[in-house]
Design a protein around this nucleic acid. Structure first.
Lengths: 164, 164
DNA sequence: TCTAACTATTTAGCACTGCTAACGAATTAT
DNA sequence: ATAATTCGTTAGCAGTGCTAAATAGTTAGA
């Protein structure tokens, strides 16, 4: 792994061991790991017959309660048109329901249905089974590392999003 | 965060604090973090005028050297038709070149061009700048956590992929 | 009040990325 | 020589991201 580092540094002309270089390495590896994790998780998502974006949005609805489309888009950090399509898909599958806001006619209120909650729970169980198999040799202490990493990523991305 | 845990457990009927529950939580958070990290990184990828799958494949080519399409697909854990299209895109952009294998006429040899290497380097630099800003308050010690997490994910996913 | 400006959502259209099924071409085995 | 296998591509579907533009509702101002 250190060998890898120096190979990369040599090829790209960075000073081995510098902080810049290390952050670059971390950024790259995280990016790659995220891509591969999601590609792996896709297998489970396909079983649920719903794409990752829908499951993620559904999760927000289930744990965060009903909310407007714009709120949901902000929570998921996508633009409104993207979320509009995701919500349309959830509705088509009967996983969420849409009502127009009584106070503001422009707004809609998106709510997870019982079916949506149930599917999400099943998807979560499937996901843990999949991950449990692949992460079998990951020790409990390492799980803490993973959780901490997830927290760091979430908070960093969320902060960085605001600045853009 | 512990509060979050118990809320989720309560709603989904898990025993709080059980190992199953904790793994489920970790799996969920990782999944969510991966989605959000990639959505964030997309902004940088868009600047590079190349999608994440292309940049990831290009990275494999740059650091792993020339290889056949099937190898590349395996390394990236996608199916051959998917990689075929990705490579076609890299070729169209002049980032990779394709030759037919001299020994086996069915095979192709995909190689990163000088332009491809340069673009990847630039993309990496852009990515670190983006991440460096968003991760400004992440301490150096935490960087180790992130790197370790990336390693765990990669190795776990790679092992799990073989079993499927 | 009537209109102008703003806000929330949707529609249309583009690009990228994943899949399976089916095909062609080259190689290997019988 | 023929059959089976392997490698890659093409075709076609679905999902997810974006911007630009349309639509409808709300708020502010003359």
């Amino acid at each position: 792994m250190l060998a890898m580092l120096s190979v990369r540094d040599a090829k790209l002309g960075h000073m081995p061991g510098s902080k810049e270089s290390f952050r670059l390495e971390v950024a790259d590896r995280l990016h790659s790991a995220a891509i591969h994790l999601l590609r792996h998780a896709r297998k489970q998502d396909v079983l649920a017959r719903q794409g990752p974006a829908r499951l993620s949005a559904l999760s927000v609805l289930v744990f965060g309660g009903p909310m407007a489309l714009g709120q949901l888009a902000a929570a998921e950090q996508v633009k409104a048109p993207t979320m509009s399509r995701i919500v349309a898909g959830l509705k088509r599958s009967g996983l969420a329901r849409i009502e127009t806001d009584s106070k503001d006619g422009r707004r809609i209120r998106v709510t997870a249905t019982a079916k949506g909650k149930k599917l999400l729970q099943q998807a979560r169980v499937r996901r843990i089974r999949l991950l449990a198999e692949t992460l079998r040799e990951v020790q409990d202490a390492e799980l803490d590392t993973l959780l901490r990493a997830a927290e760091l990523i979430e908070s960093a991305v969320r902060q960085g999003a605001g600045k853009k």
